[in-house]
Simulated scan of single mutants.
Amino acid sequence: MRLEFHPLPSAEVELIHRTGRDSYANPVERHASAEEGGMPCRHCLQNVPAGQPYLTLAHRPFQGQNPFTETGPIYLCDPICAAAVPSPEPPAFLAADHYILRGYSAEERIVYGTGAVTPRDALADYAAQLLARDDIAFVDLRSASNNCFLCRIKAA
């Protein structure tokens, strides 16, 4: 199975930049990156370069709303950056030892028993195991320390 790590869709990111609002219609925060490697953009899937501006906002990476559509803080380059091309390689900004992978149904509901803290070098293997199941439509990759959404993994 070929996996692809997907950034946030450009249409969503463009809407955030155009309106200056997050998933709850609250204003986004604007900051400048103090150091290289600290703010991973969910659109280009790169770290915001040192000294460059970025947005901080609450984001819910789901189409609908139900009890399982989690929200968390994310960062985006400011101004808008080019979207990362979906790739079989995990994003380069992943520097932690462990991450959370969680499988979701086509109805955007967590499939119980799929959430696991996973070592960085095992992300692709565990995501492939989950996506081989008929009841899992996509896998979300999240920070193990802060539970922030990082990217979505799909079968190609």
Rank of each mutant, 00 (worst) to 15 (best):
residue 1 M to E: 02
residue 2 R to Y: 00
residue 2 R to C: 00
residue 4 E to T: 14
residue 4 E to I: 14
residue 5 F to G: 10
residue 9 P to S: 08
residue 11 A to D: 14
residue 12 E to F: 10
residue 12 E to H: 13
residue 12 E to W: 15
residue 13 V to P: 00
residue 17 H to M: 05
residue 17 H to Q: 05
residue 18 R to V: 02
residue 20 G to K: 05
residue 21 R to M: 07
residue 23 S to W: 06
residue 23 S to D: 05
residue 23 S to I: 06
residue 24 Y to L: 11
residue 26 N to I: 00
residue 26 N to Q: 08
residue 28 V to S: 02
residue 29 E to N: 06
residue 30 R to M: 09
residue 30 R to I: 13
residue 31 H to T: 04
residue 34 A to M: 08
residue 35 E to R: 13
residue 35 E to F: 12
residue 37 G to F: 10
residue 37 G to R: 10
residue 37 G to Y: 10
residue 38 G to T: 08
residue 38 G to D: 08
residue 40 P to A: 13
residue 41 C to S: 11
residue 43 H to N: 12
residue 45 L to T: 06
residue 47 N to E: 04
residue 47 N to S: 08
residue 47 N to A: 13
residue 48 V to I: 14
residue 48 V to L: 13
residue 49 P to S: 09
residue 52 Q to R: 14
residue 52 Q to K: 11
residue 55 L to D: 09
residue 55 L to Y: 04
residue 58 A to C: 15
residue 58 A to L: 15
residue 58 A to Q: 11
residue 59 H to T: 03
residue 60 R to E: 10
residue 60 R to T: 14
residue 61 P to F: 07
residue 63 Q to I: 11
residue 65 Q to P: 00
residue 67 P to Q: 06
residue 67 P to W: 08
residue 69 T to W: 06
residue 70 E to V: 07
residue 72 G to H: 05
residue 73 P to W: 05
residue 74 I to W: 01
residue 77 C to N: 03
residue 77 C to Q: 04
residue 77 C to K: 02
residue 81 C to Y: 06
residue 82 A to N: 04
residue 83 A to Y: 06
residue 84 A to W: 06
residue 84 A to L: 09
residue 84 A to F: 10
residue 86 P to Q: 06
residue 86 P to L: 07
residue 88 P to Q: 01
residue 88 P to E: 04
residue 89 E to V: 15
residue 90 P to L: 08
residue 90 P to N: 03
residue 90 P to Q: 06
residue 90 P to A: 12
residue 92 A to M: 12
residue 92 A to K: 14
residue 94 L to Y: 11
residue 94 L to D: 12
residue 95 A to K: 15
residue 95 A to Q: 15
residue 96 A to R: 15
residue 97 D to Y: 01
residue 99 Y to Q: 08
residue 100 I to E: 04
residue 100 I to L: 13
residue 102 R to Y: 01
residue 105 S to F: 04
residue 105 S to H: 05
residue 108 E to I: 14
residue 109 R to M: 12
residue 109 R to C: 14
residue 110 I to R: 10
residue 112 Y to T: 13
residue 113 G to S: 12
residue 114 T to M: 12
residue 117 V to L: 12
residue 118 T to Y: 04
residue 118 T to M: 10
residue 119 P to E: 04
residue 121 D to I: 01
residue 121 D to V: 13
residue 121 D to G: 02
residue 122 A to S: 15
residue 122 A to I: 06
residue 123 L to P: 11
residue 124 A to P: 00
residue 124 A to V: 02
residue 126 Y to V: 09
residue 128 A to C: 01
residue 129 Q to D: 14
residue 130 L to C: 03
residue 131 L to W: 00
residue 131 L to P: 01
residue 132 A to C: 00
residue 136 I to M: 00
residue 136 I to Q: 00
residue 136 I to P: 00
residue 137 A to R: 09
residue 138 F to T: 03
residue 140 D to P: 00
residue 140 D to G: 09
residue 142 R to K: 13
residue 143 S to T: 09
residue 144 A to P: 01
residue 144 A to F: 02
residue 146 N to C: 08
residue 146 N to I: 09
residue 146 N to F: 14
residue 148 C to D: 12
residue 149 F to S: 03
residue 150 L to Y: 07
residue 150 L to A: 12
residue 151 C to H: 08
residue 151 C to W: 10
residue 151 C to E: 07
residue 153 I to E: 02
residue 155 A to F: 01
residue 155 A to W: 03
